[in-house]
Design a protein around this nucleic acid. Structure first.
Lengths: 360, 360
DNA sequence: TAGAGCCTAGACAACGTTGTCAGATCCGGA
DNA sequence: TCCGGATCTGACAACGTTGTCTAGGCTCTA
């Protein structure tokens, strides 16, 4: 039941009415007091208020106190919009990612926030939902707000629309996937190497028929991971039956169907490599119901993965480190670093949890 | 402290302090073109550019084209800071939550974002890290940016500091936990009822010694859940040994120690109720190593909880719905709804996954 | 005691946009 | 031919802040 109760006011604590005794010669209702109002009330000049608010020197203790009193009495708070307009810098950065709610991106988001905070900047963010047009809208909306910098997890593969913005001075760093058709800083995980290592792990445990289920091929990481898969198979001298490979949207329905298909065919796979956390989660569910044990290695770690039976071996990325590295690079640019765009590739880590063995 | 700190002047702008140098042929390097620049280039008035940019009527097709050309040629993008200053509305809302990376809050964050997007607003957010002071800093920083509205997941228990802001017109809605010492809209989950139901479930399956591990008692939801636990125990006629109850920080070390303690004592618990997702995750790990099976019901659902063995029964909250409801309430306020503050309590849902049985 | 020098304080002009208002142009109808 | 009205356009003043510059008042020294 959804119950909506008008909240009884006196319950928590009677609100002390002593807080705002006299609201001055009543500034316009609903409008906030400005420095001008504070100045008038304190009987000082506008600039003096500005000085006090910003802690600038050159104000006597007495004057300062008068101003502080006026500020408190009026409930003044500096309007940062005006400040930003005047100063040119907004002390904020924008982050465009795929999905704020995705367990992989959430720690990245948090890491970016921490770095921003350490630099005194606020974070504006939004989800592209893997839609290039929406990515563009968001990024440009952030630019219109004149964020100092932009961190983008690309959904699209053409970022030329950002060129004027970058030229105009908005520092931009791409994470997780490289920028398309422009040259820019990027911080990536080693998708190719990670997938190769994960698949090699399966091959080393005797699997010969290994399936690959990944995200849509236009996504850079998906393509790289597939490449890692193929390379590892070739390294191990294993042929790849194309029915073992499936790229496409990661929604559970498709992944479930593909997993079941690979387990059912005339030449069923004995092991599966899954291309990201969402795919892994669905595959685990399907495999849990499989009569025949199937080995599974997944890209991205999962919470509680160690507790599944069998525990899922994963190729873990450090999402927080991705975010941190990207944000630090961004602020390095903002501090004036003028080196040419660079690409940082962070290593992945194979976490063996015992699901690799060939048990079929 | 959040602040715009101007760094070394003269760095990005090597302009002699005397005056504006010739700015007509090419705008200063690094400076963005403004409507004035566009107007000059298109040979029209400033206001005409404004009209074109905002799609206002009253511009002939020919003039519009000239302006559009100039915009494209210069790479002009409207400065929303100036626009905001002029218009008074920022079309942005602020969200203060505990931790952007927490799997419980991430979907809430996303839901808020979706609603904001539907209303054409951007989202600024930040993590309080459960620190009241940081919550305050963030909320006030957002207010200084003149967000239209604020959604807060309280870390502290005194929100009187927001009174002047609310009075000045910043709509504010609290989620997950009620506001402290002020009367404001709040959207909550039914922590009491949910915990009561979860503990009753354990009692109904024959458990008599049921432990409770929760978050710090000053957190409203933790206190409510404990109350639900005590009520359910009383309902079932079960005495509560205080050694079965533990409230405190949710970091794994403490939770692990407490869980082990409850399992080891002279009167060990046979079942455990855990107060939120973080506690549950740690408890599951400890219980997985327990020689004796212990039943577990947790507040908050976990990804993959259905795949654990035994599967974990949970009291699930709908985090996305919390976020959506709060954001909708916020925009209702922004659209002028003037009803008294109200408290919405959303139901929880017991998801039985078979771990409730007494197996010891 | 005068002048130099420091400190405090305020007047004023930006920042880039939008709302208001008034001028210019054009049309059709009398 | 002239006028009313509609349509298009631009000058100008805000919005609230900060940087620059100058005016006083004070202290200190010669």
């Amino acid at each position: 039941m959804l119950d909506v109760t008008p909240h009884a006011p006196g319950k928590d604590e009677p609100v002390p009415s002593s807080a705002q005794p006299t609201r001055s010669p009543s500034p316009r209702y609903g409008a906030r007091p400005t420095m001008k109002d504070v100045a008038a009330r304190a009987g000082v000049g506008l600039k003096t208020v500005s000085r006090v608010v910003n802690g600038e020197p050159g104000v006597t203790a007495d004057t300062e106190r008068r101003v502080q009193d006026a500020i408190a009495a009026l409930g003044f708070r500096r309007n940062d919009s005006a400040r930003i307009l005047r100063k040119g810098r907004t002390a904020s950065i924008g982050l465009v990612l795929e999905d704020l709610a995705d367990p992989f991106y959430a720690p990245l988001n948090r890491a970016v926030e921490e770095v921003a905070r350490a630099h005194g900047a606020l974070l504006i963010n939004g989800s592209s939902a893997e839609d290039p047009e929406r990515e563009r809208e968001l990024a440009l909306a952030f630019c219109a707000r004149r964020v100092d910098g932009l961190i983008v997890i690309p959904a699209g593969d053409d970022h030329r629309y950002l060129e004027p913005e970058i030229a105009a001075g908005i520092a931009t760093v791409f994470v997780d996937r490289p920028a398309g058709r422009i040259d820019a800083d990027a911080v990536l995980s080693d998708s190719f190497g990670g997938a190769r290592e994960g698949v090699a792990h399966l091959a080393a445990h005797g699997h010969r028929r290994i399936g690959f289920i990944g995200d849509r091929p236009r996504i850079h990481t998906a393509a790289e991971r597939l490449r890692g898969y193929r390379t590892a198979m070739a390294d191990a001298g294993l042929p790849v039956d194309e029915s073992w490979v499936s790229l496409g949207p990661t929604e559970p329905g498709r992944v479930r169907a593909e997993t079941e298909r690979m387990l059912a065919g005339p030449r069923p796979v004995t092991a599966l490599f899954t291309g990201n956390n969402r795919v892994t989660a669905t595959a685990v569910r399907v495999l849990a119901r499989s009569p025949r044990p199937v080995a599974l290695v997944g890209f991205d770690d999962l919470e509680l993965a160690d507790l599944l039976s069998p525990a899922v071996t994963v190729v873990a990325q450090d999402a927080a480190r991705l975010g941190r590295t990207a944000a630090e690079q961004l602020f390095r640019r903002l501090d004036g670093a003028a080196e040419p765009p660079r690409r940082v590739v962070l290593p992945t880590r194979l976490i063996v949890r015992g699901s690799g063995e060939l048990r079929a």
